[in-house]
């Protein structure tokens, strides 16, 4: 567990340090901490996706959480992408709607809001 803490602390430097995380993950596999291993795995995927988004949608995505990413994507009108993120991380339908609702409100996009 400590090792994993360290890994998390170091990752802060940048996304490039993902390899460190990989090492941490390997250590996790041996024990029964499957939940944590899964989370770390998810984190890596998230970082990769965020990196990809940043390439075409502009900076400001790394470091966000899953929900925040969806929120931001909806806000800049990339609903499809947002839905892809949703399915990728199995975000429950209910919370996805909440996020979408909030995002549209903050965008003041009343037309799309009504379409929902």
């Amino acid at each position: 567990n400590l090792l994993f803490d360290e890994a998390l602390a170091q990752k802060v430097l940048s996304a490039r340090l993902e390899k460190l995380k990989l090492a941490a993950k390997l250590l996790q596999d041996s024990k029964e901490n499957t939940f944590q291993a899964k989370c770390i795995d998810e984190t890596q995927r998230l970082l990769k996706i965020q990196d990809a988004i940043e390439k075409d949608a502009g900076p400001g995505f790394t470091g966000l959480s899953v929900n925040e990413t969806i929120f931001k994507l909806v806000r800049i009108g990339q609903l499809k992408r947002a839905q892809r993120v949703q399915s990728e991380f199995k975000v429950p339908e209910k919370s996805f709607w909440w996020i979408r609702l909030r995002a549209l409100v903050s965008k003041r996009d009343w037309i799309e809001l009504e379409e929902m």
């Binding site: 966000l64 991380f89 919370s95």
Partner: peptide, 11 residues
């Protein structure tokens, strides 16, 4: 929680 507030909260 991890989804909503970010993976760093695993810590």
């Amino acid at each position: 929680i991890l989804h909503a507030y970010g993976p760093q909260h695993l810590l």
